[in-house]
């Protein structure tokens, strides 16, 4: 375990994976720093799961390379499984295995496991220990799956569709567990299509679409790069000239919404909006400028770039 502090926890270079004529992953490169929560976002079929399965060694890429703390998951399986914990999407256990039995079984796989009682407690499984897997709700199965991914004290944890099937409260609890994990130095690779989850948890995000990384950065950077980086709202006594606002440089949309004017646009668009309002002799009240959501950035990036990429 003597890797340099500067080397990435997870390194993916030029990964490509095809199934017959279908290109699942075209060309993906990314580097996840130790202790980071790194999000992989993208629409269904974008190549997210193939990417993480290649990282986990469940699939071998046609081209490129993957390193986890310097280890090659395609050839050094025995070493990689000891540093990696994975919660797979749609992966069930034996239907008649009890929660306690599953936790004990997984505990026996590792040399230095986390006490499973602690994990069961954190994940709210303590009162279900004697229930069989097939009798658990979807959310309980999900929480058990997360517990099993963490029981081996992994240095890198891959969580695929972490909060699918969880109710809002359980989701918040699971998010807190992920944050606590990072606090202990674990690197986390989070696959999700929940913008909220990505924005809440991730230090950096890669947006993958059609097998390629379309954007990579902090959530703030991605929001800023989107066409609707800021949302400006205000109230006015008389209806303003929305057409004039829409014509302003950097404005994407201006509309009336429940008595409020909502202007979406680039980062500093609020200044020109105020100028235009002054010209119209309209005084805005309750002026608010907030950062746009990741949703808009995501939609921009997954729609436009892929369409352009296909056209070229």
């Amino acid at each position: 375990m003597t890797t340099e502090a500067s080397s990435p926890a997870v390194l993916v270079e030029g990964l490509r994976k095809t199934y017959g004529a279908k290109v699942a992953v075209d060309d993906v490169s990314l580097a996840v720093e130790p202790g980071e929560i790194f999000g992989i976002l993208g629409p269904n079929g974008a190549g997210k799961t193939t990417t993480v399965e290649s990282i986990a060694g469940l699939r071998v890429g046609d081209a490129g390379r993957v390193r986890i703390h310097g280890l090659d998951p395609w050839t050094e399986r025995d070493a990689v499984v000891r540093v990696l914990g994975i919660q797979l999407q749609e992966s069930a256990l034996q239907p008649k295995i009890a929660v306690r039995e599953a936790l004990e079984l997984w505990t026996a796989f590792y040399d230095d496991p986390v006490p499973w009682q602690d994990l069961a407690d954190q994940l709210g499984l303590t009162e279900h220990l004697d229930r069989r897997f097939g009798m658990l709700s979807g959310g309980q199965q999900q929480r058990l799956s997360i517990a099993l991914a963490l029981v081996g004290r992994p240095r890198v944890a891959i969580l695929d569709e972490l909060s699918t099937g969880l109710d809002p409260r359980a989701r918040r609890e699971v998010w807190q567990i992920v944050r606590n994990l990072r606090a202990t130095g674990v690197t986390i690779l989070l696959v999700t299509h929940s913008m909220e989850e990505a924005q809440q948890l991730c230090d950096r995000i890669a947006i993958i679409d059609r097998g390629r990384v379309r954007a990579l950065g902090t959530p703030e950077e991605l929001v800023r790069s989107g066409s609707a980086a800021t949302i400006t709202t205000f109230e006015v006594s008389a209806a303003p000239d929305l057409e004039a606002l829409r014509a302003l440089d950097g404005v994407v949309d201006a509309r009336l919404e429940q008595g409020q004017v909502v202007v979406e646009g680039a980062e500093d668009v609020v200044l020109s909006v105020l100028g235009a309002l002054a010209a119209q002799q309209v005084a805005p009240r309750r002026l608010r400028v907030v950062a746009g959501s990741l949703d808009t950035a995501y939609l921009d990036l997954t729609d436009d770039t892929s369409a352009k990429a296909d056209a070229s």
Binding site: L84, I86, L93, Q94, W106
Partner: peptide, 17 residues
């Protein structure tokens, strides 16, 4: 069949066993 379709075999592939 059950172990394969439920992903139990795949799940074990990611552990030391």
């Amino acid at each position: 069949f059950g172990y394969r379709e439920a992903g139990v075999l795949r799940r074990l592939q990611t552990t030391p066993v």
